[in-house]
Design a protein around this nucleic acid. Structure first.
Lengths: 142, 142
DNA sequence: TAGAATTATCTCATATTCGAGATATTTTAA
DNA sequence: TTAAAATATCTCGAATATGAGATAATTCTA
């Protein structure tokens, strides 16, 4: 029997994460936003006020994409840009009233969704998974 | 202390898969192809002859995207379309000589890369990970 | 067997992402 | 203090992904 063409753990890992990703994508479509936009809103929901740079680093997208997504969210009225008086290169971003309302509507359901998807794992299993994934991450980065 | 905003296992899972994804992306840049193109070639490398539809289902992209990526790969000379005589709606795709050569060059290194990334896991750990991920997958799909 | 439904692919317009380079500002260092 | 380096954001063009609808062929069914 020939060796399995690709690492099984690898396949499982990539398929599972994609399935989760797709699930969240669908969830967000209901609110007329995409995953990237949600990620930005999520950062702001927890951090309140962030520079465009900081958000980009959090969610790992390029500066060009940041400008684009921030524009979109501003057009939709969920966030607003605030010029920084101390450093005029910098622009801060915060949720608007609307943005906050949206997030307060979305987040509980979103948390449930995540917890439900990961929810068959016992605490013990969850810890094991985290440990194993960290081991892999460490290896990938180097 | 407030509950952690997002499920840790979830975060770890998504970050790890993204890191792996990025790593493969970089690997493929060396060969002047992107991940989607590689995925198509990989399917053909193992399955020999597939319809456009079948490939699309394997790698989970839309029919519009399939036409695009198949065009690109044909332009690059790695695959060719073959009309199906039995069912004229269908188009089969196979690797060309060039495409096969490319894959024979790429695949060993790619296998190594994957095995290396996942390689810190013992067989036991790998099995555990697979088991846990399957448990999650099952939950996500429903 | 004709018409309806299904299937496979393609076309097209739109959206998103990226990277390179432009611009403006601040910081550093001689 | 001033020139150089670093930083933050934006602009722009290219690449890629999507979904809706078009086209063409096949299959199903009354």
């Amino acid at each position: 029997m020939e060796e399995k063409c690709t690492n099984q753990a690898y396949l499982e890992l990539m398929q599972t994460s994609k399935a989760i990703q797709d699930c969240i994508k669908m969830e967000m479509m209901n609110h007329k936003i995409n995953i990237t936009e949600f990620s930005v809103l999520e950062v702001l929901y927890f951090k309140e006020k962030q520079t465009i740079q900081q958000i980009g680093k959090s969610i790992l997208i390029s500066s060009g994409s940041m400008t684009y997504v921030i524009d979109k969210l501003e057009q939709k009225g969920f966030i607003k840009r605030i010029d920084c008086p101390n450093d005029r290169r910098v622009i801060h971003v915060v949720l608007t009233e609307n943005g906050m309302n949206l997030m307060e509507k979305i987040m509980p359901k979103h948390r449930d969704l995540i917890n439900n998807m990961l929810g068959d794992l016992t605490d013990q299993e969850s810890q094991t998974m985290i440990k194993l994934l960290k081991k892999v991450s460490k290896r990938v980065e180097t």
